[in-house]
Each structure stands twice: as C-alpha cells, then as structure tokens.
Nucleic acid binder design. Structure first.
Lengths: 339, 339
DNA sequence: CTGTTAGCGCATTCAG
DNA sequence: CTGAATGCGCTAACAG
C-alpha cells in the first residue's frame, strides 16, 4: 500500500460510465453491452486494476476466508491436511488463515476470537481440546458459543454434547487393518504402545485394539498395551517397559500409536541389538520411509479430510442441515517392518 | 455470520452516546470520561461485542494481515519459520495467511495476486523463484512489480537486480562450522553430496565447501562433490555414486546438502553394511534425532528468521529505508553421526 | 470530553 | 442495458 491504489471509480471515470457498471462487468453477473464491457476491461488491464477484497468483504458480508486452528503445523499430519484443504479452498476462491495453538487452550481461545473478528466464514479445528475425552466445561462452552456465529468443523476430533459437524479418519478401522495384516503374517501375540488415556484418538485405538484381538480369538494381555505419549522419547520408554515387564512372554508384533513412537521403539531395539519384532505405525508420515527399516503404517485419507472439511464449511452457508459426522476409512501401507 | 452481529451503533444507541465515542473507548486513544467509558464497556461485555476487523481494515487502510508464500509447509524448515513468525506477529496484532506454492511458479503468481487483493501489509517469501540462481525474467519482474505496492521480504533467498530486503541463514558459515568440526575430529578427506547447481542455497554451500577445505589446506577432490537433489532418494543415489566413482579413494566424512540427503545416504550404507563414514546434515530437522545414528546438523536461526521477517515488514510501513539484507549465523548441533 | 459528518471501495437496490 | 443513491461497520477530522 505504498501507492494509492486505483479504484473502481478511477476506471469508471475514464470509461465514462458509472462505478456500478464497472462493478457489473467485473462481477459479470448482470448484462452489460459488449462495447462498454470492452472499454472497461481495457482500462482494467491498462492500470492492472485489482479489486479490493476487504471492501468487497464488507459489502457482501462474506470474507472468503477460512481459519484453521491446529496444534502445530510442524506435525506432518496437520500439514498434510492443511495443504489439501488449501488446494481445494483455492479453487473456490477461499483463502486460509493458519493458527498454531501449540497445544495451549488459551491460544486456541485467542485464535478463535481473532478469527471471529476477522469475519472468517468458517473454522477448521484440529487437535487440542477436541481430542480430550473430558474437555473442560469452559472449553466446550466457548466452542458452543462460537458455533452459533461461525460454522466450525472438527477434523479427527469430537466433543460430547457439542453439536458440531466433523470429519474423521476411521481410526478403529485402521487398527483393524493392522491386526488383520499382522494375523495374516502369522502373528498371534500383538502389543500396542504409546498414547495417553483421556485422549480420544488413543482411546479409540485401544478399544479397537482389544476388540480386534478378540475377533481373531487372540490373547488380550494387559501388559502388552502400554501408554506413554506421542513422541520418539515416549516410544523408547514404552518399548523399554515392554521389554522389562514382559521379559518372559513378549509379543512378536508391536503397534505404535503413531509413527514417532515406533521410531523410538526402533531406536531402543537398535541399541539393544534386538530385531525380531514386527512394527506398525500410524499416520504414514514421511518418517516411515526415512527410517531403517521402513515402517508399515496406516495412512489417513488426507485429501478427503482437507477437501471435505472446506466443502462442508462452504456448504453450511447455504444448507442449514444437522451436524454431520463423517468417517473415512484409512488404508494400510505395508513396508519392511512387517515383512 | 449466522446471526446479524451487533455493531458499534447498537451499543452506542443503548449507551446514549455516539458511535464515535464507542469507537474511542475501544481504541482507547482519545480521552473519554470514566462514566461513559464504564457504561460502554459494560454494554460491550453484556453483548460480547466484537469489532469487525474487515470494516476496520477498510477505514484504517491497514489489514493487519501478512501473507506467507512458501513451497510446502510439510517441509519442517518452512514450518519452523512460519511458527516463529506467527508467534511474533500475534504479539503485534497481525494474522498470517499461509500460501503453499508447491514449487509452482504459476501458483506463486496466483498467491501473490490474491494476497495483494486482500490488502496484506506485507509478504514473506520463501523458496521457489527466489532460490534460483537464474530466475526467469518474468519471475523477477513480477516480484519487482509487487514490491512497488507491498513490502516483501525474502527468507533464505535472494534475487539479483531486485532491491528487496531479505533475511537469511549464513549458510557459508554453516559449512565452515561443519568443516572446522570435522577437521577437529581428525578428518582430512571430506565429501559433499546432494543439491542442485543453479539453486542459490546449493551454490553457496558448494562454494563455501571448497573455500573451507582450502582454508584447512585439504584436498579438493572434484569427485567427492556430487549433485543430486534434496530428498531421501537423491541422497541414496548420490551416496551410491560416491561409492562407485571413488572406489579406491573414498572420503571419510560426508556432508549432506540437507538432512534428508543424509538419511538417504545412511540407508544405502545400512543396506551395504557400511558404517565407517561420518555424516553431517543441514537444517537440524527432527529427522536428525529420529534416525539411527542421530545426525550432526546445522541448525538455522529459526526464531530470528521468523521474527525479524515480520518485524522488518512492519517497520517498512513507517521507515522507508533501503533494502536491508540480513545474515544470521547458524550453529552446529553435534550428534552421534560424527563421534 | 463528545457529537456530527464524511468517507474507505465496492455491490446492490431502484429508477430509468 | 445503465446511472444515482445507499449502506456495509468503523475511524478520523472537525466542531463544539
């Protein structure tokens, strides 16, 4: 904004038409004679006129912006979803504002407020409070309140008592794919490491883990399921505990709550010169291809997650249907770690 | 925007004051009597009034938004810089729009245009055309044109004949740190793999590589410097070539143009059961800590990169100084791969 | 200290 | 097909 930018009036004056006419030829939604249309377009080109999106937002009461709140864009899962969302949004003329909440509830609140003030037409929410099995009442209420003014869609998360559309990876299905695969490979003793109870994604996976073992009539050994966390260090610790506690009766295959946890387990095994476990991760991040061995992992439907999230937000402007909760099946990518 | 939101007028009416007064108490930049101030604040709270940022942008002619164009937010380098930029921007009341260009010049152009129409107050540009040693003339001109209207700052990139502020990691210094370290470890035969000639970051590193070898009076063996690319696969290929071409005279330490390339080289060595090389990466991404062995790497000054980028943009609104080109020294993080 | 007025740049009635 | 007029929500003079 170093120069005073040229406006619709400037080009209207020079074309000897009214600003309304110029507006019409730009929008192209009302009949305008070919002659004036050409005159206007020529001027637009001559001055490289660019419409002021802010002014347009104000009059039309639609900002064409969508806010995305997520814990940390450094995490490849979120980054992937974001990219897919952006790709689709672009085709619809929408622009995305990215807000990293760094797992801080306060920051989430702040971003919620800022996005609301900026008149975004919708908010894509990932991680944080929507992955707590028991979120604070205030966290729920705040979202409830926001939803009354702005459409929100939760990705891979859910909140009880909150009527809000969501789109999620069917994580239980992911666990099923893993266990079916492992059983097919001949495994009968399967463990699960990582995650934290009280976090929806973990709770869902643990539950599915047990159910699917039973489906195959396999032993459900409590000490083969170890909570710890979500990063490499936690994975290492969980693996350490696994080896320690089950010294005399170890599983042969181990599922990590995510890829990072598997990386950690792998590191520990490397240190201890152990390499007789089969490992499976979750998220199918780049890590799986960069590690040695490459890791079998469950891949999220990134494209659908991002695209539908945007789509549902846009649609919710017109349609005023009930909150829909979509689930999309992931798929398994088999690699060296289970061969 | 499901409800008609309440405006400054609504609260003005109920407080029996003018809209101007309400505006004043909100902005807090003009004296207002305590009594009316309280009355207004109470009403604001009562209705949870939120100022409309779009309207404010229009009148004040400042959007308080900054655009960020980068190739791919999935890349941890860009993600880190973004997070730091956002963190700082938040404290200054700025919001960031993220645009992934996916290494497409067309997308870059499109984003440039969209950001301009949205009246962003500045653009942070990373990767893509600004890392080409010889960018297309049209690519230069387009940026030149944008700069006339909107402040742009390049991060870790540069464009000849383009007077544009920039902030960069001193990559030559990074290479120096690496070589000093390797020499101290007793290495005298050092190689460099990955990257592509014609990309500034690579060219800078290669040049520094040679200079620093000479500084230590070490042999500069052409076949020890192998171009290939920037990902794991390219790293693997480069390492393969290294082993093949230099069968009878291999270096003992190998520098990767980035971490990914080292990962690739490491994988190849693992396959061939070779483990007598020292490796050093560049970027200090998470990968370095997740691999086996953990990789010594050069860490970018992420915090400064992000923060100063935003700062320079904000400042350029007032100050109209010459384009400044800042360089910040990185530091070396020593890990298992060079011990 | 406070109210009135006039835009910011654009889109949309409402009349021709 | 086109122009004049109005308003989106807010801020910034300009008067009191």
């Amino acid at each position: 904004m170093k120069q005073k930018s040229i406006t619709i009036y400037d080009i209207a004056r020079e074309a000897n038409v009214s600003s309304a006419t110029v507006s019409r030829v730009i929008a192209g939604n009302y009949p305008v004679s070919e002659k004036t249309k050409k005159k206007v377009f020529d001027l637009i080109e001559k001055y490289d006129y660019q419409p002021n999106a802010v002014a347009r937002s104000l009059t039309k009461k639609e900002s064409k912006m969508i806010g995305v709140i997520l814990p940390d864009i450094t995490n490849p899962f979120f980054a992937q979803v974001f990219i897919e969302a952006e790709k689709y949004a672009l085709t619809k003329g929408y622009t995305l504002i990215l807000c990293n909440s760094m797992n801080s509830s306060e920051l989430e609140s702040r971003h919620l407020r800022v996005l609301s003030e900026r008149q975004v037409e919708g908010i894509i929410f990932m991680g944080g409070r929507i992955n707590k099995t028991h979120p604070e009442v205030s966290e729920i209420n705040e979202l409830k309140y926001v939803i009354e003014k702005i459409p929100v869609i939760l990705v891979n998360g859910r909140m009880e008592t909150l009527e809000c559309p969501s789109i999620s990876t069917n994580e239980a299905k992911g666990i099923e794919l893993i266990i079916d695969h492992l059983v097919k490979q001949g495994h009968t003793k399967i463990g699960l490491i990582g995650g934290m109870t009280g976090i929806t994604t973990t709770d869902i996976k643990v539950e599915a883990f047990r159910q699917n073992l039973e489906k195959h009539k396999l032993a459900v050994v409590d000490s083969w399921q170890i909570y710890s966390g979500y990063d490499v260090k936690r994975g290492k610790e969980a693996m350490e505990e696994m080896l320690e506690v089950n010294k005399h009766n170890l599983p042969t295959a181990i599922i990590g709550i995510n890829d990072l946890v598997v990386i950690g387990a792998l590191k520990l095994c490397h240190q201890k010169k152990i390499n007789n476990f089969s490992f499976v991760g979750f998220d199918d991040s780049e890590l799986t291809q960069n590690s040695i061995p490459e890791i079998t992992s469950v891949s999220h439907p990134y494209n659908e997650l991002g695209e539908k999230a945007v789509d549902m937000l846009i649609k919710s402007k017109t349609t005023d249907s009930k909150a829909e909760n979509l689930f999309i099946d992931p798929h398994l990518v088999v690699r060296e770690s289970t061969i």
